[in-house]
Design a protein around this nucleic acid. Structure first.
Lengths: 341, 341
DNA sequence: CTGTTAGCGCCTTCAT
DNA sequence: ATGAAGGCGCTAACAG
């Protein structure tokens, strides 16, 4: 450590008390001069601020939070940090909240509901300013803690169920329907859906269900659904082969992620299938690669960073105005037509 | 909020005192029974634990931290959350540290040193258990705060300069040299380096410099260096065109990111250049896509998640054993030869 | 092994 | 407008 705790010279961090002494005022005045400057006479205020600056005073957030009953921490729980959708949401949230003095505490549960519960419990014991979780599907325990936590609770990235408090996301089911409709309207009858870890990812499952629903409604036929083991590019190729084996003559496939779709494109090339003439491919995510793949990938775009911005705005709003109420916001998805479907 | 603060029925969170009362013991015993169970007789321990469970007691971390002088928080500052390298590092760190009861506070500075300083200052005022920053290039102010913070400080993702405390990463310069050597050894004389935001990203700049150095040393010629505006796939194509204009006849290009390299592959196809016969391409990152691109991309692999694991392990070690000392660990990079170079 | 006693550093009434 | 004083909820000596 740059500086050992018990070293004789360990220069104890400067506290508010020293600032008070140097400025020749009371502790309370320092506190006020720093937190609500307009309740202090200009003279004292500047005197205090100068003293603080000179001493390099940095308030102890822990002590402040104990006295203040709430920490400037926002707990956010996502399934995974390497999933670029959530990364985009987090990046946006950090940007907006850091500016206002809030810090993000980040947890990840890898689609494990029990783990989510443990993290929620841990976060809740920090008296955070807000708690943000992914999705609306939680254990009873999680729901209990969330309901008992006296701060805004936001469930993001979903809109298919009622939120506990505030919900900000979109309907995954509708995203799936949109894909199904797009295929049905082009007259495709033999179609399939390839989803990553459908067994664990409830939102991907909702999209798959929406897809089947709409395909069934519009064409009267059942879509094949295939579960890929991960959202890696390589799985897309494997899934394509599986689809063509289980359902020869498939004319269109929707994926639960762009990477899977691109992987399928590569494999299709190897199999000699022309895209989109022999086979239409539709992604989900609108990652950068979708624009530049060859041919450019048609895809469904979830509002990844918009969610982050909306969540941050909502939190700020709720904290500023205690009378502000919960909301249930559907940010919707868009079909981006490029050349594969 | 699930539960309004000032609602008449707001059931105050249960405190340690209530548990003590119910269990019929003192406050201190509850604290001990919960934090260091083996210092308490089995009888009382179970009695306390039962009481705590029955009352749904959750300790207030803030109070605990104030009294204990250190929070179970680890502050981590990265340039960007959407950069999959850092995401991988963070994912690994979270995994390992969450298990031991630590929470990550995450900040991002977008390659802005002033912003880094502000975040470091903010984090430091939480009395974190450890502080982790990216790189070894900081403002004087940042260095000052970091040096004065009484906790382990880890500088990760670099190894080109001396660390303040502990350093865990690899030499970016050496990564660049490796690329240059690889080209030189194959007899390429007209080569180029394409880096993303070299003006801001010092580590990418180090790689570019290492590349030039080694190329100059082995071939006696100067490599062209081109700066791409972002690490997006699309920029790779643009950069390729620029290289071929500025230095017609270029035989090999190294990139500061796999996405750029893949973008260049797409563009090369459009330009009718065969890879690697007409032009060799070398990426950096070893992203999933490198394996599955067509042809598979040769690349330099930085130890993204290994860094996360090593950082977490080091922190845990330092915290467990106060006598543990700083380290300076070089995790190295590997050249992954596939088919483009 | 258990209880008592001081704080941790700040915020916030309450007087002045 | 300012100061004094009592916590916030828990931990860590110190006694017993």
């Amino acid at each position: 450590m740059p500086q050992t705790d018990n070293s004789p010279a360990a220069p104890r961090r400067v506290r508010m008390e020293e600032v008070a002494k140097v400025a020749g005022v009371s502790l309370a005045t320092v506190s006020r001069a720093l937190k609500s400057p307009d309740t202090v006479s200009e003279k004292l205020r500047t005197r205090v601020q100068e003293a603080a600056a000179r001493l390099g005073y940095a308030p102890n957030r822990i002590a402040g939070s104990l006295a203040g009953a709430r920490t400037p921490l926002v707990g956010v729980i996502v399934p995974s940090l390497t999933n670029s959708f959530f990364a985009a949401t987090l990046e946006r949230m950090t940007e907006l909240l850091e500016d206002k003095g809030y810090q993000l505490m980040i947890g990840q549960h890898a689609y494990d509901a029990e783990r989510e519960e443990r993290i929620v419990a841990a976060f809740s014991s920090w008296n955070p300013s807000a708690l943000v979780v992914t999705g609306r599907d939680h254990t009873r325990g999680t729901v209990g803690i969330l309901s008992a936590t006296p701060c805004p609770v936001i469930e993001m990235w979903d809109h298919d169920a009622r939120p506990l408090d505030t919900g900000i996301g979109f309907s995954n089911r509708e995203a799936g329907r949109l894909a199904g409709r797009h295929f049905a309207e082009q007259g495709f009858r033999s179609v399939a859906y390839v989803g990553a870890i459908l067994d664990k990812d409830g939102r991907a499952r909702s999209r798959a269900e929406g897809f089947r629903e709409e395909v069934r409604r519009l064409t009267g036929r059942d879509a094949l659904v295939v579960n890929a083991g991960s959202r890696d590019l390589g799985e897309g190729g494997a899934a394509l082969k599986q689809v063509m084996t289980q359902q020869p003559g498939t004319r269109a496939i929707a994926f639960s992620g762009d990477m899977l779709a691109v992987g399928a494109m590569f494999e299709a090339a190897r199999m000699g299938l022309r895209i989109p003439d022999d086979l239409a491919l539709l992604g989900y995510g609108d990652l950068d690669i979708a624009v530049h793949s060859n041919p450019p990938l048609s895809t469904i775009r979830p509002p990844h960073d918009e969610i982050g911005a909306a969540v941050a705005r909502h939190i700020l709003h709720r904290l500023k105005d205690p009378a502000a109420v919960p909301e249930n916001i559907d940010l919707g998805v868009r079909l981006i037509r490029r050349q594969t479907a």
